[in-house]
């Protein structure tokens, strides 16, 4: 997502850019992707009986409030996953759970199908979610509404990935670490760790990324992609002369996983990566790669 992505007519956008080019201008002075998530998060919670709501809406938002909030957060994350900024990023989806009343209703909302039993629910929630012509911001709008309904267990876990999708990587990393501290060992914590790893990777903090992916892998050893990312980042640390304790495990080597790793390594710009790729190709560095990091080094060199 571009920070300046807005739905403006070309001639209006052109004039806006022209006027903003003046050094004294106050227009276009902040990367909107960085500041908007925080502004959304500060909006006060919605009351249990929102203004102007129908009986059906009150039922949905009262009896199923937590579910609705969680589903909205998931919808936000799914919307974010469609953004080019997250193309080929390593994101392991949550396993499907039993559909509930709230979820079923929201699936209908998401699909845009007519909800014949009570069309007002769809209209009201769409209104509340601030849907507008600014489709670019829809993930944040959905998450903003989710947060206004409360903060059910699980909803917050999508926050880091949304921030990453918007390019707000340092904030995503902080959020992911906070989440990790608050969660018990298990699936949700491994997701938080890996989302922190993704954010750290995107800003070239390979040591932090390696540690985050190690923690994700320890919570879910069956997810060997976490191990792969840990080892790739550990290898990059070794190229930079930094020392990282390397987790031992079986690096995934099947063609599908290898292709995914290659595509995700080049999916988005990472500061300093070109220099590391150059170093990785040198004969000396090839000779000094520890045996345990050989597969990671091979994948990384292939991505150059």
């Amino acid at each position: 997502m571009s920070g300046n992505a807005r739905v403006l007519a070309p001639e209006v956008e052109a004039l806006l850019l022209e006027i903003a080019a003046d050094p004294d201008s106050n227009l276009l002075r902040v990367p909107r992707a960085d500041v908007l998530p925080e502004l959304f998060a500060k909006r006060p919670p919605l009351p249990r009986r929102p203004r102007g709501s129908t009986a059906a809406e009150r039922e949905l938002l009262g009896a199923h409030r937590d579910e609705v909030s969680l589903v909205l957060a998931r919808m936000a994350a799914l919307a974010a996953l469609r953004l080019p900024s997250l193309a080929n990023a390593l994101i392991v989806p949550e396993p499907p759970e039993r559909a509930t009343v709230g979820e079923a209703a929201l699936r209908l909302l998401a699909s845009g199908e007519r909800y014949t039993d009570d069309g007002l629910v769809r209209e009201a929630l769409a209104r509340a979610a601030d849907r507008s012509r600014t489709e670019t911001w829809e993930p944040f709008s959905l998450l903003a509404l989710s947060l206004r309904l409360g903060e059910p267990k699980g909803a917050r876990q999508w926050w880091p990935i949304l921030l990453t999708s918007a390019g707000a990587h340092p904030m995503a990393l902080r959020e992911a670490k906070d989440l990790e501290m608050a969660l018990e060992p298990g699936f949700a914590r491994s997701m938080a760790s890996s989302n922190g790893g993704l954010a750290a990777w995107r800003i070239g903090r390979h040591g932090e990324a390696a540690e985050a992916y190690r923690r994700a892998y320890r919570d879910r050893p069956e997810e060997t992609l976490y191990l792969a990312y840990h080892q790739i980042n550990a290898y990059l640390c070794s190229l930079k002369g930094e020392s990282v304790e390397v987790e031992v495990g079986e690096f995934p080597s099947d063609p599908t996983t290898r292709a995914f790793l290659l595509s995700s390594l080049t999916a988005a710009p990472v500061p300093g990566l070109a220099e590391l790729q150059r170093r990785a190709q040198s004969a000396q560095s090839r000779r000094t790669v520890p045996r345990i990091l050989q597969p990671a080094a091979e994948v990384f060199r292939a991505s150059a």
Binding site: A20, R29, V30, V35, L36
Partner: peptide, 17 residues
């Protein structure tokens, strides 16, 4: 804490909060 009151100006015009 009140910056969200005028977030629409940040979104549309990129003005600092």
């Amino acid at each position: 804490d009140d910056h969200w009151h005028h977030a629409m100006m940040v979104e549309v015009f990129g003005v600092a909060p």
